[in-house]
Design a protein around this nucleic acid. Structure first.
Lengths: 150, 150, 150, 150
DNA sequence: TTTT
DNA sequence: TTTT
């Protein structure tokens, strides 16, 4: 039952170029690691930093943006959900935890090429018509159910 | 340009019953205040608490859930976006800041009636078909563009 | 370099009672799994749900609250950071991803006992003295202004 | 009762240079507006964007960083809490909603000067000593363990 | 291994 | 009043 919340928010740098796979279905998926580094001062007042690595998975539109615009070193914001899965390797069950991105922002202000349109996960928001009503919602919806590969 | 993030996460209690309006278009909107209370110990070790009031706005499916299941005192989780708007009253321009909810969870564990189905903003997630691939995305998409009034 | 963000927000239920260890240093640590369940409707309109399991780690004050008040089935909100670590087992390097909680809220509205004081991670908030100033900050600080490095 | 959550996460650009006040107490406060812009495609496939303006308030160390490094146009990440307050002006009670920042990150990758040390709100993190234990916490604490009430 |  |  939807009585749960599963939300991850990260800002970090890609540790590698994205690996992108184009699926028969017409969908795409990009995977890459990002490092998030938080700094602090230790007891002696020395600067310390904590770096964590995260496996990021982006689907569809976000995968395509990743393929075209992200590379090792790129700085991004990702909002998504935590997932874990297991797989067999050498007869041993191994576990991987990944962050599946729902939103992604590129944070490099370099004069690089830019995506034609910022992306939420293969989605486009609709124009709202709220007039004198309370603030209209920021819908994020699909334009056409047919472009949803599921 | 979609280089921005605007996210609010609240857990609090309704200060009043929701006011719900059913719009001609077939859509609905619910508004109500919630109080979020954070506690802390002051310098003397006394317990202090900080309460803030927030104007919540829910549209469509979430408005209907609010109408049916929320009332003064209900405890909820809301994730949404901050918006501000102005209006004239007595010849004076006034400003209101509201939180437009994208997701809402009811947190009362009382034996009350429950919504038939948890709601993201008038949306239903689609079944994903990811097989042996990296963790599949948790899509939140509209089932039918026609039920979107904007 | 503190140019990173690493934030996780979860609402879910404990899959087991917390395991608590009291360390020589006088500190405590509690660990337990929680399940977050998100629901959605698939293409055929059937209800589907996605459950993910997360390893939660709570330190100090939060560990003590967990020890006293949490048990299998308890519903909680946790805000924290994602961390991964490796360990050897049977000559194989294994990886674990955990969520180290910075804030925790108990969400059970049952008539159970409650913690005497809500806890942020071994912190107490200060009374603020802001009067006619912009909204006072919700400080989370140590007890002694002298240990504030700015 | 700490049964509440009040969290705001924004990424946007400063609309003006920060206004900084240095208080007698030795503290500082910076205020400035930021715009968050989210983009989307409307039904006709035209690009639309939604911009919201937010009043940001930063205290102490964060105020000093703002004073030194932020200016009109700067891009930042802010995590904080929503607050509202009222004031009288021309005999009329007016309301303001502000976001009091707990964490701030500068997101400009321009070759500008950088703050000596990233800042959380007047806090310094401790070096953790967790070794063979579960992932150590990313403490944000005062400098003196004795001021930890647990 | 949780919950509705 | 910002930015791309």
């Amino acid at each position: 039952m939807a009585n749960g919340v599963n939300k991850v928010i990260l800002i970090g740098h890609l540790g590698k170029d994205p690996e992108v796979r184009h699926l028969e279905i017409g969908s795409s998926v990009a995977t890459f690691p990002i490092a998030t580094t938080e700094s602090y001062l230790d007891r002696e007042g020395n600067k310390q930093s904590m770096t964590e690595w995260h496996n990021i998975v982006l689907w569809r539109g976000l995968a395509k943006v990743a393929e075209q615009y992200l590379k090792k070193g790129s700085k991004i914001y990702v909002e998504g959900r935590l997932t874990s899965r297991s797989y067999e390797k050498d007869g041993i069950t191994r576990y991987v935890t990944e962050v599946v991105g729902r939103e992604m922002l590129m944070l490099d202000t370099r004069g690089d090429a830019h995506p034609p349109m910022p992306e939420a996960e293969h989605e486009a928001m609709k124009k709202s018509t709220s007039e004198a009503l309370p603030t209209a919602p920021a819908e994020i919806t699909g334009d056409d159910p047919d472009d949803l590969p599921f």
